[in-house]
Design a protein around this nucleic acid. Structure first.
Lengths: 177, 177
DNA sequence: TTAAACATGTAACATGTTACATGATTAG
DNA sequence: CTAATCATGTAACATGTTACATGTTTAA
């Protein structure tokens, strides 16, 4: 149920339409909580039903600007301070690692290198976002930078871990023969 | 569509029933790919329809032992070597970080400390699993250990990052006044 | 004899993805 | 005038969770 909290959080910086929200999810939240257009419109309707948001204004092309209500603020507050985040329960990358014994060691090594490469690319992308934030000063982006730092460290971790794993596989292979 | 690949991977070490598979998912795969009983029975039925697995034997209490077929092995091989794993698209923990500006700095710090604590607990649990694997020798557990090492490093990362973030928040707060 | 473990299956519901359908407004 | 952007909505389908329903076998 975190999509709604993402929406509520976005609405704290001002009213927005479903369309606006989609852009914001794609831009700033893409790496943290993805959402599709379809999901957003559906969730906004449900949240309006439950009075967590309300239609504050209408615009051209049937545009509906939603604003967060007090109930919405309360719900967001509660979620922020009293609900522990669920840890991620699934990693497609690690699931494959579990079954790497099913392919020859050289292919396992290729898999690990590929993961390191993907992580390097991700690191570069995140670093670019960091660069683009260079001018923008604090307040608005402060915690965005904190989250960004997590991403930077996580992608470095994958690269280091994959390199370590590669040496493990090679040692084991040599010891085998 | 990775549940089915998890099942296929499990079945490479021999035939198993839905019940067996559930235990194995709970024990060894819990941190990597979770699955419920309901999901497993449903997926096994679908996979049998598609000839990726077959009922190899029946046992007491209506027990059905499924075995992987050649088609299943081919599918698994393809997934392992030719399909890039999807990166995780959602982190409830980081989503909250994005909105930490909505709560007072001392509460934001409390949030970060809580995440560090949770990560420390997770690290301890994983270390215990590592200990329990101490006796068990290679082959079977080799790549499990590699995956475990990822978990250990990831939980350390969260602790270090949270500590760093805490200093950032404190510096910013002091500079503010 | 009775509790725990074994064993399967399904219904209801929540969440998430892709594709389709429709139309208004703006900028070049 | 016409392409891009703005804007909403829904249908179909896939995936995932919780709860219910049912019955057998084994071990204490």
């Amino acid at each position: 149920m975190s999509l709604r909290h993402g929406v509520l959080g976005m609405l704290t910086s001002g009213p927005a339409s479903g369309y606006d929200l989609l852009k914001r999810f794609e831009q700033s939240l893409a790496n943290v909580w993805s959402a599709t257009q379809s999901q957003l419109y559906g969730e906004l309707a449900k949240m309006a039903d439950e009075s967590l948001v309300e239609v504050a204004a209408q615009g051209p092309r049937g545009r509906k600007e939603y604003a967060i209500t007090q109930r919405g603020r309360d719900e967001l507050q509660h979620w922020m301070t009293e609900v522990d985040p669920d840890p991620p329960r699934r990693s497609a990358m690690l699931l494959r690692v579990f079954f790497l014994n099913l392919i020859p060691p050289d292919q396992a090594v290729a898999y690990l290198r590929r993961q390191a490469d993907l992580a390097a690319h991700q690191h570069a992308e995140l670093a670019a976002i960091g660069e683009s934030l260079r001018d923008e000063s604090d307040e608005e982006t402060f915690y965005g930078r904190i989250a960004l730092e997590w991403g930077l460290r996580a992608s470095t971790l994958v690269q280091e871990w994959a390199a370590w794993a590669e040496t493990q596989v090679k040692n084991a292979t040599r010891a085998d023969t």
